[in-house]
Design a binder for these strands. Structure first.
Lengths: 247, 247
DNA sequence: TCTCGTCTATAACCTGCGTTATGAATCTCT
DNA sequence: AGAGATTCATAACGCAGGTTATAGACGAGA
């Protein structure tokens, strides 16, 4: 999974082909891939902001450790995602990032990002769009934490993963691998691990979701989407015309 | 309250004076002020994205109306804030915006924003920093919704308002005017109005917060800050050096 | 193959917060 | 100034979800 695959397919690619230089700029972000093992902390909260990362294989998450001993997971990163944009512009990390399972990441520098932005307005627009879309996903999560019950939160979470994984070809027959533990899911949804388990049982009994260890199948994605009133405009990006003319 | 006051004081002003042209560009955003009355909807969810607004007087909030009949307030806007940046890059509004009390707003167009960004990298940086800071505030709210109890959420909410109001000179002797109803506070914090009332009583009994209708006094801001482990790096912006050299 | 650690399922119990209700205080409009 | 609409405080009650406990299933390493 390269950025070229994900960014181009997600946004820009739809609106116009990239030049050779732009492709090179993107590929340059991925010159230094390295393995990362499950549980590895890429950086801690409050660390200096020096690097960003492209996730090439594996899943990662950003999180905050709280004074009361609990953790809040802010976002789950899948292959093709860029990690660290949250801290763009800040001197210190606002959140830690750790790997969920074994994977491959490609770190790149502020410097490289600035160069890319300076050289290609089209890529700059794509990067900004990425940041904005991430903010939109965060907003959606916030709404669910504030106003929805456990089974709706979990259904929404699973359905969002399903859509994101489908875009990168990681869904087969409505099923996908999900390396998150129930404790981690709880930390993302503001629930206890026990209640996540209870809620999975509930969704199973209702014939919506089947799960066997790390494999999840959405038996009826449409029904799930209706249950959570899923609005996918924030994932299936709809950039404004004005934005494109900015190039 | 003009953008010049708020943006310059918040970010850029610390790092270098603005040129005459930059001041003009900023003031141009505020050429068309108009009155807006309490409860007025500036735009609905899903409306076309055409305008942004500077809040000159009064408070506003962005919100989502949910299928289950409830509402989630995403952000409260104070004088000097820019409304609508959330939707920058999208064709449709992701959230509605309404006035909390009577005020004055200055709408400006995409066009004007693009022109400003094109003409002044310094202002572009300032705008981006604003967006990033708003995302950070949203993240903080998310953490509180996920992992903290009602009295901590309310204390955090009040303390954040206190800091933001202090920056624009709207705090006197640790007290400030707060035009939000308890129902609206509940919609922001994911609580029922009844429980907001109970929680206010609790904070009063503990000697932390006194409230008389729309006037709030934080009797001991330090104690409140400790209670919520307030981390103000996301409000007192600390832009990275790399970011500044980008100009 | 056995052992130890991690993950999951389910039960029992408890509490924080939602819901509903009621009355008082305050605001708005005429 | 009076009437109706909001807003707020407090109480009573119920439930969703937290906490603790236990036992089975699975995976990694020797």
């Amino acid at each position: 999974m390269t950025l070229l695959d994900s960014i181009v397919m997600q946004g820009l690619g739809r609106h116009g082909a990239l030049t050779a230089e732009e492709k090179t700029l993107l590929l340059n972000l991925e010159l230094n891939p390295r393995r990362a093992i499950a549980g590895e902390v890429l950086w801690q909260e409050s660390a200096d902001v020096d690097l960003f990362c492209v996730v090439k294989e594996g899943w990662a998450y950003s999180y905050r450790n709280l004074g009361n001993g609990s953790m809040q997971i802010l976002k789950v990163y899948l292959p093709g995602d860029i990690i660290g944009m949250r801290d763009f512009g800040f001197a210190r990390r606002l959140a830690g990032v750790a790997m969920i399972n074994d994977g491959v990441i490609s770190p790149f520098t502020h410097q490289q990002l600035f160069e890319l932005i300076g050289r290609s307005p089209a890529l700059a627009a794509s990067i900004i769009a990425t940041v904005v879309r991430q903010q939109a996903m965060l907003t959606e999560r916030l709404v669910y934490l504030g106003r929805y019950a456990a089974h709706e939160r979990l259904a929404h979470f699973l359905y969002e993963l399903y859509l994101r994984l489908k875009r990168i070809g990681a869904v087969a027959e409505n099923g996908f691998q999900m390396p998150l533990s129930q404790e981690q899911i709880g930390d993302a949804l503001g629930l206890s691990a026990v209640h996540v388990s209870r809620t999975f049982s509930m969704l199973r009994d209702e014939g919506l979701v089947v799960r066997d260890r790390q494999h999840v199948v959405l038996l009826d994605p449409q029904a799930l989407a209706r249950l959570v009133e899923f609005n996918d405009t924030y994932i299936d990006e709809t950039l404004s015309p004005a934005f494109h003319s900015f190039h």
